[in-house]
Design a protein around this nucleic acid. Structure first.
Lengths: 107, 107
DNA sequence: TTCATCTATTCTGTAATACTATGTAGTGGT
DNA sequence: ACCACTACATAGTATTACAGAATAGATGAA
C-alpha cells in the first residue's frame, strides 16, 4: 500500500528509532527491513537523511565497521537520549491513536 | 498533551474532514471543538489554511451564512470527492496503525 | 582485464505541511 | 468608548520525506 507521504512525517523517525533499538543497526538493512515490512515505497535516501539527523541531534552512537560484503557500514545504537526520545514518541503515538479512535466514533 | 507537530502532518487534514462530516461545519467551531478534544495547542491559523486547501482541492462545498454573533461564517460540507478522500484517509490510517503495532511488538 | 551487479552511503534540491504572528471585522455588554 | 468574543485570512518560517544522482567497495562472469 502506498500511503500518503505526509502521513509518515514524524512517524518515520520513530519507526527508525524503534528499528535501531530492535537490532537493525545500519541504513541499508533498515531500508530493506522496512520495505519488506510493508513500506514498499520507502526511499533509501529518506532513511539516510533521518539517520544523519539522529546523529546530529545526538540520539545515537555511531561506529564504522567493515562489511562482509561491499563498503563500510555505519552502525547505529540508541544512547540514553535516543531511548528517551523513542519512549516519548510512543507516548505521543498512543495519545494520537486514542484521540483518533474517539474522533472516529463520533459519527 | 503537546504532541510533536510533525506527527500531525497528514493527520490533521483527515481530522478536519472527519469533523466536517460529523457536522462541525465552520472554522471557528472546528478549532474550538478540536481544542476541547485534546489538541489544546492547535492554532486557529492552521485550521483555516487547511480549510482553504480543502476548498482549493474541491473536496468541500462552501456556503456563507450569517452568524448570530460576529461576522459571516463559512459553512463547509464534504462533496463526493471529499467523502472519498476521508475514506482513503482512514484506509491509510488503518494500514499505518497496523504496521506500527506489529513493529512495536518486534522487541 | 572489463563490465555488470549488489552492497552501502552521501548530498542537492523540491514540495507539502503545520505553526507563528499578525491583521481585519462584526456583535454585544458594561 | 472600551473590551471580550466571534470569525476569517495570510505572509513568512521550519521541518520533513522524497526524487535523483553521485560515489565507492566487493564479487563474479565474460
Amino acid at each position: 500500500m502506498r500511503i500518503s507521504t505526509e502521513l509518515l512525517k514524524g512517524v518515520l523517525e520513530g519507526i527508525i528509532l524503534q528499528r535501531i533499538d530492535a537490532g537493525i543497526n545500519y541504513g541499508y538493512e533498515i531500508t530493506k527491513n522496512l520495505r519488506d515490512f510493508g513500506f514498499e515505497d520507502l526511499a533509501e535516501g529518506t532513511v539516510y537523511t533521518i539517520l544523519v539527523r539522529l546523529e546530529k541531534n545526538e540520539l545515537v552512537d555511531v561506529e564504522k565497521r567493515k562489511s562482509e560484503m561491499g563498503p563500510m557500514r555505519k552502525f547505529y545504537q540508541l544512547n540514553q537520549a535516543g531511548k528517551e526520545r523513542l519512549n516519548l514518541f510512543w507516548q505521543h503515538w498512543d495519545f494520537l491513536i486514542n484521540k483518533m479512535t474517539e474522533l472516529r466514533k463520533e459519527n
